[in-house]
Design a protein around this nucleic acid. Structure first.
Lengths: 200, 200, 200, 200
DNA sequence: TATGAATGAGGGTTCATTCAT
DNA sequence: CATGAATGAACCCTCATTCAT
């Protein structure tokens, strides 16, 4: 990569980082492209050389950040000695939620307007090759498990929706209760779901 | 009721109905107040006599429609002869989801930007007295059940989040599958959750 | 005056007093007719039964208040034993300025957009018969004076313009200095003007 | 200067000139930003690239025009052979008033809402370096004078207030008389003031 | 590739005025 | 006389997008 290309990537990265900062601190709707380029120190026209609009940038940020969250949780998981898939899922759920609690502004960004469809598309299309692919991670986890689950993809979808949706409510609005109080409840519910999916 | 009061209600209702139509057909962000009043056939200033801004109108629509959905499901439930709380929850879940599938634009409106907090606030503050109070409905259901559940409020919160969130994904994006295929899966998950909350 | 007429006058006075309050507290441009009628407790349409617009009300307030200022100063003057016209003018100037300093919001109202022409017109057209006519007061003062002045009307005009204009600047903006420091300077200037108008 | 910089100055100047024209012909309150940009032939957004609002433009116009008036009077003064400060002040007063009489719309603009404070601020902050600094001009005049005056700054303030205020009334409303008749009176008053400030 | 001045449609909001009641 | 709901023109201002440099 020549100096020239490095410079190119510099501007692009600056726009990405600045956008994350602004989106999380003041919301995406309250952030104009003017704000972004001013803070990033590039010209307005330059923005359009790299991104279509601010929602394009948001999608890329979602992919990047989501993967980071999963990777971080997976790394932590490997340091533990947890064998059952059920416990692994619980562990990762807690790890991710606690991390999001520390960075609730990020949660607001990646959850707002986020859907399973957009999410998968984002991860598929926008993730840079350097990041881990968390879809594969999940797959491996179930392959290694002695207990088998029917439709484990759908099961994980349902669990993900429940956890993310109620976690969002809990962290952002403290509704119906704070995260620390909701976590045991979520754990019980997740185990309930997984139990009902077990193949005997 | 004088000629004026009747006229007042007419204009207000016209604005509400028009807003619902526009919000569901083109999205709330793409709907301007100009659009609303033009279609409603009233002057721009009239809008501000009745509503603070378009989000005020949206909140009132969410409350009204949510209550209607629950009421409709509850009415249908009473015509059936279902005794267990578990089956009742499953029945209402299916009823509401199938209704939303028929009116997916409405789903998009009442789900977008909707949180448990906003939802409860909306139902509490904006619901007109003529509508049924569905929070009371749920409460009664558990009181009548022979099987008891611990923390049934939290349990219902988790179920609601899972069902609405994954139902939204399924209906709007057909992700990860169409609703008819997802329903049995959701049923299994819901039963799993409720089983884990049973008090023996 | 019947009860009915009394009621009429009540609404009119309420509008006048409320306007004065709002004009002085938040400025005439920042005061809408809505504000006035809401605070006055009358209907919007009622405003137009008594006044053309808010500038109409302002003109009437200017006339009323200006006359009150002069009358008050004249009453105080009569309690002193001042013989020379020069000293009388100085006395009244100080009295009025000190009163305005206490009520600088009023000063802002009656000075802004105030011109000699509007002022005379206001006093002539809008002053209620119950108030004193200060133009006559001035006239009498010069008739009683042993020292005579040529063109004393113009002289008074020039003095009034200088005193009001620089007094306004001093009271409102403390420019070029506070009123207490400016008063001796103004006195010197006024005496200088009057000296040059003396008839020997 | 590149093609762009030239264009920039062109647009800015066009806005300034157009504003002056509209402000003087129909008043600043009756002039909307829409009016200005339409007449100037630029887009609405362009206005906000150069000015904060129309009052920002007015302040700049006041500073520019005030300086021009003083400079013009000073240039004319230098062609005469007037030695005494008193005569110099009288000469400049007349010169400026006569010029304003020719351009009474300009007078209306720079006098309305004008205060000594705003005036000094405007001259200090908004005057372009190319214009003369008339505050220095006045200072020099008194330094060169053999007759000395105490507090000549305050004296000039009082004279300025009197002259501008009564000149405005005379030119705009012909009240209490036309300028040509008022000028000798003002001269007498000014000489009276200055006499009373002389140091013997 | 990079710039940033210029655009102008469109946004939300206010408010003096009217007129049916 | 009195009301106040309704009006709709007019306001200011933002901002995504373009394009000559």
């Amino acid at each position: 990569m020549g100096k020239w290309d490095a410079n190119k990537k510099l501007k692009r990265d600056s726009l990405l980082n600045t956008s994350l900062e602004l989106f999380t601190s003041q919301g995406i709707n309250q952030t104009s492209i003017s704000d972004i380029v001013k803070k990033a120190g590039v010209a307005k026209g330059t923005f359009y050389l790299y991104f279509k609009d601010k929602y394009d940038i948001r999608n890329r940020l979602i992919a990047r950040k989501s993967n980071q969250l999963f990777s971080s949780a997976y790394l932590a998981l490997q340091k533990e000695h947890i064998s059952s898939a059920e416990d692994k899922v619980i562990f990762m759920m807690k790890h991710i939620l606690l991390e999001l609690q520390e960075d609730s502004k990020l949660l607001a960004l990646i959850y707002k307007d986020l859907s399973w469809g957009l999410f998968k598309e984002a991860v598929t299309n926008f993730s840079d090759d350097e990041d881990n692919d968390f879809l594969a991670i999940i797959e491996t986890m179930f392959e290694d498990s002695p207990v088998k689950y029917k439709d484990h993809e759908v099961m994980m979808f349902l669990i993900t929706e429940m956890v993310s949706s109620s976690g969002y409510s809990s962290i952002i609005y403290k509704q119906p209760m704070a995260l620390e109080d909701l976590l045991p409840e979520m754990e019980m519910a997740v185990r309930g779901i997984m139990k009902s999916y077990e193949i005997h």
